[in-house]
Design a protein around this nucleic acid. Structure first.
Length: 460
DNA sequence: AAAGCGGGGTA
DNA sequence: TACCCAGCTTT
């Protein structure tokens, strides 16, 4: 680069910083977390804003701050309260990490959000972007805060064709963003950068004509602003067919349905849901094809029994879809009836388990008989017999139970009365009022509300 | 370095 | 309906 080019580059940077800051002072939105410079508010808002739009976050932010007004209040709250407050916002590890970090702040920093880089960065759930955002926005420290908005803005203004999905690109952008921060204005400037990305320099159709730095935007001058930033696209989510059970209680559980808690870690960790299991593909059918109704009910019955839940599918109720970034669940939801005679909810004592196993044996035998005759008649109800769990007559029940690919509900109490702390999967019978106490992923929230609506005669 | 982790918006 | 958005943790 010649000396002249370097000088032009320098002027371009100064122009950018000056005009962007000026624009921000005129155009900034009135957002709840901008009304105070409370580091805790900034922190909570930044965690919520990860992968989430401002409009979605605002109501959650108000509720969260009202419920947990201080770091200490958050640190001292029961985890399920925090999860319930986050319900519907997605990426629930953010909520658990945030509370974990609040406890870090309470114990290690006397309840005050730290203002040095290493300390902030050490907080659970705080990575390079969020650390920079907290340090700059809350403490006006000259740290870069490079998120997707910022990378889009910078890649266009400086016409950078680096793949923003790659790690080294973020490092490069952070170096550049740090150089751009005007002396003493880190807080406003970093927010300005993100505000521009959100309001003007949008992914699809950037509003260049209203942009405060359009005159020196290299991407626009080259006419390639809409093809920036360069980014390798993620692979598509894999489809997963699942069978879900909406179990209607009887007797003591009349008017209630059964929910279970997910495992301590992994997908939707510790959230509550209707029980559901993978639907194996029908033999010889196209992958992803729906299981025939009778076969699906049979399969679901087996899953229920093996999970220690005494209930029987009665009819297909509805299908529901839940999309993650990496999986698409298609849930076929079956109404099921609780079968009386065996106490629910779990956990099972050893004797109870033996009873269930006996019933499972009966179910397996019944299945074998039905399956055999159905096969003889040439119908299509034999599609449960996938590898590893063919329930042929005389099959060893224990081996069926143990080698079945279905993950059982972990509802057993060990012989000494203790529970498995890692995979304890609690179950509960709930009515609509009880829903307020449990955090559900959106799809189950909608299913349960819809179900109770029908029960209460509010809808068809 | 790549994969896992939700939910809502727009074209 | 198809596609887009995107930061941190874990592996």
């Amino acid at each position: 680069m010649t000396q002249q080019e370097q000088q032009e580059q320098q002027e371009s940077k100064l122009f950018f910083s000056r005009h962007l800051l000026e624009w921000y002072h005129q155009q900034k939105r009135d957002l709840p977390w901008r009304r105070h410079r409370n580091p805790y508010y900034i922190w909570v808002s930044e965690i919520m804003l990860q992968q989430t739009r401002v409009d979605t976050v605002i109501p959650y932010f108000h509720r969260f701050i009202e419920r947990f007004p201080t770091v200490e209040a958050l640190a001292d709250a029961p985890e399920e309260d925090v999860l319930k407050c986050w319900e519907g916002l997605g990426y629930y590890s953010r909520a658990r990490n945030l509370q974990h970090a609040a406890r870090q702040v309470k114990e290690q920093y006397g309840g005050n959000v730290p203002n040095d880089r290493d300390a902030v960065f050490s907080l659970k759930g705080v990575g390079p972007y969020t650390a920079g955002a907290i340090l700059s926005i809350a403490f006006n420290r000259p740290e870069p805060a490079v998120d997707g908005n910022v990378m889009r803005v910078l890649s266009r203004y400086f016409l950078m064709e680096d793949d923003i999905a790659k790690g080294p690109t973020r490092i490069k952008m952070e170096r550049l963003a740090a150089e751009l921060i005007p002396e003493g204005s880190a807080s406003h400037f970093n927010q300005a950068l993100m505000e521009l990305g959100a309001l003007v320099c949008t992914p699809k159709s950037p509003r260049c004509l209203t942009c405060p730095v359009m005159e020196h935007c290299a991407g626009r001058l080259a006419g390639c602003e809409t093809s920036l930033p360069v980014k390798t696209k993620a692979k598509p989510p894999r489809p997963e067919e699942r069978l879900a059970a909406l179990i209607e209680g009887r007797g003591a559980h009349a008017g209630r349905v059964l929910i279970r808690q997910r495992p301590m870690s992994g997908l939707l960790a510790r959230m509550w849901e209707l029980p559901h299991w993978p639907a194996p593909p029908a033999e010889g059918a196209a992958p992803g094809a729906r299981l025939a109704d009778a076969a699906a009910q049979d399969r679901l019955r087996r899953s229920l029994v093996k999970a220690g839940i005494s209930a029987r599918p009665s009819e297909h109720w509805m299908a529901a879809e839940h999309t993650f970034s990496h999986i698409i669940w298609t849930l076929q939801v079956y109404r099921c009836r609780e079968e009386e005679g065996l106490p629910l909810p779990m956990p099972l004592a050893a004797e109870g388990l033996a009873v269930y196993r006996a019933e499972a044996a009966a179910a397996v035998t019944a299945y074998s008989l039905e399956g055999a005759s159905a096969n003889g008649a040439g119908t299509a109800s034999s599609d449960i017999g996938e590898a590893g769990m063919t329930p042929s007559r005389g099959a060893d029940l224990e081996s069926v139970l143990l080698t079945d690919s279905i993950v059982p509900l972990e509802v057993e109490v060990f012989a000494d009365g203790t529970e498995n702390p890692e995979d304890m999967g609690a179950v509960r019978w709930i009515n609509r009022e009880d829903m307020a106490r449990y955090a559900f992923p959106n799809v189950f929230l909608k299913l349960l509300n819809s179900y109770f609506d029908v029960q209460e005669g509010r809808k068809e």
